[in-house]
């Protein structure tokens, strides 16, 4: 038996709405296997599917025949999930997302809640700089292990 500190799971799926569900399920099970609790898995499922639908819709611009690639790494301290598209479009958004008031008043598109949700649900959520020469956008989500703080003894 050879054991490793890092557990890596890779998932590749068709860049079409609906298939993100399968990736989300696979990542959720991976997180369950490494000991994440139910609440964090729910957060993770929502954040991962938001990253996937952004990648499908904006990164790959729904072009047929492309894929989305996910790499999940757990090292005992944190779970890191990278979601990569094939970069038909660079879509890193700048500035604050529109508020719900603006959306309901029709002053902003109803869509575009994904980034806000990911930022709130994950410990870290950001685009990765293009360092490996690929054209694609890569988005990283990180959840850190929570250290239980013990009550001081009296």
């Amino acid at each position: 038996m050879t054991t490793t500190r890092q557990h890596i799971i890779e998932i590749s799926f068709p860049s079409e709405f609906g298939y993100e569900v399968i990736a989300r399920e696979a990542i959720a099970t991976f997180a369950r296997c490494v000991g994440f609790d139910r609440d964090r898995i729910d957060d993770l499922k929502t954040a991962v599917s938001e990253a996937c639908i952004n990648a499908i819709e904006h990164g790959n611009k729904k072009v047929h025949g492309l894929t989305i690639d996910i790499v999940g790494v757990y090292d005992g301290n944190m779970l890191q999930i990278d979601i990569a598209d094939q970069g038909i479009q660079q879509y890193q958004v700048a500035g604050a997302p529109a508020t719900i008031e603006e959306k309901i008043a029709g002053k902003a598109p109803a869509r575009g809640m994904g980034l806000l949700l990911m930022t709130q649900l994950a410990d870290e959520a950001h685009f990765l700089p293009d360092t490996n020469g690929t054209r694609g956008n890569r988005f990283r989500l990180i959840w850190r292990e929570r250290v239980e703080t013990l009550e001081p003894e009296h």
Partner: peptide, 13 residues
């Protein structure tokens, strides 16, 4: 998901 939430925002409107 957020696309679903967008539909609900449309309903609120």
């Amino acid at each position: 998901n957020s696309a679903g939430i967008a539909i609900l925002i449309g309903i609120v409107t």
